[in-house]
Nucleic acid binder design. Structure first.
Lengths: 208, 208
DNA sequence: ATAGATGTTGACATGATGTCATATTCTTTG
DNA sequence: CAAAGAATATGACATCATGTCAACATCTAT
């Protein structure tokens, strides 16, 4: 992808950028109103006031447009994945992890609308699925690193396959995320984070 | 849905059933070859040697056909959910649960092809999503029941929200199931079951 | 044997996608 | 500064899938 927001000295380029932004803005509205599948290019270009073919000049299709729209939200998730982690005890670890799980789920709750579109897209578009997979792997790698840190400090139980445990822990978080996005979960985010973290840390860390 | 396999005294009815089965058989082949999205009604009816409209006489559309095809597999999952559970100790509980997780993942591995189609369908068709959701809830209810059993026998840790823990535990299993289905998981099913169960039981049950 | 019910059919209307030749707008060059 | 040329924009078009429906075929029951 090219850098954007530069090269505005060129009138053509400038107009091109504006068109692109108009399409993105309208696309977001259409996605939120219609959902991923029912949203059509026609609706978007109509709302943006540009020609049909124009959409295909700027993007490869519906999938591509969504991916670009997702980038902001994904960046926020990446931030959460970066939470520092250097606990001295099981209890401290629990606090940090619980807090991270909370932030993760809270973000999903906040960005529910767009995440809802993403969920639909993941099922249909390989590109969208890949984008989300990147985010997932980022988290899992980070979790794994954190587990190793705990292990080096002698906090973890023996005989565990950390790779598999790390994935498993993320999976619990991810599934609750989707339940929240779908509005299927009535329990408050705080409680969810507390409950799942409690089992996870009690399962991973050595007893007192 | 009507009962099938009866009423064969009626020639029209019999032919109708045969047509229906022909469509189902061809549909399965097409689904497995093309995946859910690329599979089309035209391909199916061509393979089945029936008219286009006929498919819509017997089914409501692609989604509906898949749902019918899924019923066999779903029944197998239901069986696993029925595993008896009355452990006397933490260790015994671990054994039973690990075994159940193993069966669950093993079934997914065995039925990979059709589960792969289901996964795609879940993202597109609300009907398919619901069908799977039913299975999920069945498992979660069963897990919850098992947790309560353990609780009544004084095996569980204090202060846990069992509802949330039960869902979380299923979620780990489910996500590993999808990874296996997608062929993204190279670790053997045995190891996965062992690893996730270990953390779960150590987190849920009281220490020795 | 014939009326009527049950089942089958493919042509059609609809609507989405992606492409492309053409038109438009701006920049650069002689 | 005019003309050549590059970058954008456009919408008509070809393609393909869906779901419907009026007509047709087949079987049952009177």
């Amino acid at each position: 992808m090219d850098k954007k927001g530069v090269e505005t000295s060129d009138k053509r380029h400038l107009r091109s950028m504006i068109t692109r932004e108009k399409i993105l803005k309208s696309a977001k509205e259409v996605f939120l109103e219609e959902g991923f599948q029912k949203a059509t290019i026609s609706q978007m270009i109509k709302k943006a006031g540009v020609g049909y073919g124009t959409a295909y000049v700027h993007f490869e299709g519906k999938d591509d447009i969504l991916i670009v729209l997702m980038e902001d939200v994904m960046a926020k998730f990446y931030e959460i994945a970066e939470t520092p982690f250097s606990p001295r005890s099981k209890e401290e670890a629990n606090d940090i992890i619980e807090n991270q799980a909370y932030s993760f789920l809270k973000l999903a709750e906040k960005e529910r609308d767009i995440m809802c579109v993403l969920e639909q897209a993941i099922g249909v578009s390989p590109e969208a699925a890949n984008k989300w997979k990147e985010t997932r792997e980022k988290f899992i790698q980070r979790i794994l690193k954190d587990i190793h840190y705990s292990h080096e400090n002698g906090l973890t139980r023996a005989g565990l396959n950390f790779e598999l445990v790390a994935r498993g822990w993320f999976f619990v978080n991810e599934m609750y995320l989707w339940e929240i996005v779908r509005g299927e979960q009535r329990a408050p985010v705080e409680e969810i984070a507390e409950a799942i973290t409690s089992v996870y840390t009690a399962g991973l860390y050595k007893g007192v």
